Amino acid sequence: MSDFDLGGILRSLFARDGTSLGHVWIPDGHVIDANNQPVQFPTSYAVEDAYVMISLAEMFLKHTRVLWREFYPVVHSFITYGNAQAPQAVGTVAGPGQLKDLGTANLDKVIPLAFPLAGPIVYDGQNIEALLGLYAVPAKDGAAILINTLSQLSSIVPQLAAATQVAGVLKTGTEQMLGIDGTQLKLGLHNSFFPVTGGEGFIARPGFALAVSKPSNKVDSKRMWVVNGRLRIGDNPISAQAPDDFDYMLIQFYAGPPRVNIWGTIPSLADHTPAFENALKADAATRRTAVNLAFSVFESELAKSRDLTKSDKSAVRALVAQDLKDRVLALETGSLFELKSFGSEDVVREDPALFRPHKIELTGETRPEREPGLPLWS
Rank of each mutant, 00 (worst) to 15 (best):
S55I: 01
S55Y: 10
S55D: 12
S55R: 12
L56G: 03
L56W: 07
A57T: 02
A57V: 06
A57C: 03
E58D: 14
F60V: 07
L61D: 06
K62T: 08
V66G: 04
L67W: 13
E70F: 10
Y72C: 03
P73Q: 03
P73M: 03
V74C: 08
V75L: 08
H76N: 07
S77M: 12
F78T: 15
I79A: 07
I79M: 10
I79F: 12
I79E: 06
T80E: 10
T80D: 02
Y81E: 04
Y81H: 13
G82K: 12
G82V: 09
N83I: 12
N83Q: 15
A84I: 12
Q85F: 14
Q85I: 09
A86N: 14
A86S: 13
P87E: 09
Q88I: 04
G91C: 06
G91I: 09
G91M: 13
T92A: 08
T92R: 11
P96E: 04
P96H: 08
G97D: 13
Q98K: 01
Q98R: 05
Q98M: 00
L99K: 06
L99Y: 12
K100G: 07
K100Q: 03
K100Y: 11
D101C: 00
D101K: 10
D101H: 11
D101L: 12
L102G: 01
L102W: 10
